[in-house]
Simulated scan of single mutants.
Amino acid sequence: MPFVTEKTSLPSALNNQLPAFISYFASGMIFAFYGEKLFPNLKIAFLPSLALLVLLNVFKIPFVSALLMPICLSFCVMFLGLNLKVFADIGRKTDYSYSLYLVHYPLAMCFVSLGVFEKMPGFAIFSVLGTSFLCAYLLENFQQKLFGIRCNAEAVK
């Protein structure tokens, strides 16, 4: 998206909006639709994806990075999410992803407007992530107790 906004008269604000990140959502959707075929290959694809991800961040070739970064990141996130015990129950018991999405954005925007990310990036990242996880957990538990339903993939099927 930065390439498109630079070469056209589109506003640079689009660099931080959905069109700029749709490839990341699409990569996740590929795992949602074709996961059964991709999951057996995660162990094989993880290390090359991680190495390529590092190289893409170091060399930053615009078109190649925009094409391969979402795919490599998806393989790494899926592998770690499915193979690290700390993440074992996230998504299996309850899907926190949408709650995290809803909670983190306003918090991140507050920190951006206050300049916290520029002054203390580590604090800002951990604060946004920690608060988002805590709020998402509390929101999901409240919803489950109030409505007696579980929002996960099995409930949708």
Rank of each mutant, 00 (worst) to 15 (best):
F123H: 07
L129T: 14
S97W: 03
T94P: 05
A88F: 08
S65E: 15
I125W: 03
L14A: 00
Y24M: 05
F79P: 00
G130L: 14
L38H: 05
Y101E: 05
C135M: 14
V116P: 08
M120F: 13
V112Y: 08
C110Y: 15
S49T: 00
C151I: 05
S99E: 07
I44G: 00
E6W: 13
R150Y: 11
Q143L: 07
K157V: 11
S97G: 10
F25H: 03
V4Y: 04
Y34H: 08
I22P: 03
M120C: 08
I44Q: 01
P2E: 12
A51T: 12
T131H: 04
M78V: 13
S27M: 12
Y105P: 06
G81N: 04
A51Y: 03
F117K: 05
L107W: 12
V58I: 12
S49C: 01
E36T: 04
M78E: 10
L56A: 02
L139H: 01
S65H: 15
F133H: 05
R150H: 11
A124M: 10
V77L: 02
L82H: 06
F59H: 10
M69A: 14
Q143W: 07
G130M: 13
S113E: 11
A153E: 07
P40Y: 03
M120G: 05
A136F: 10
E6M: 12
Y105N: 12
L129P: 03
V86C: 09
F126T: 02
N57E: 07
N152C: 09
Y101S: 04
G130H: 12
L18K: 01
F46K: 11
T8A: 06
I125L: 09
S132K: 03
V112T: 09
I90D: 11
P121R: 14
K157C: 08
S99V: 00
F63T: 12
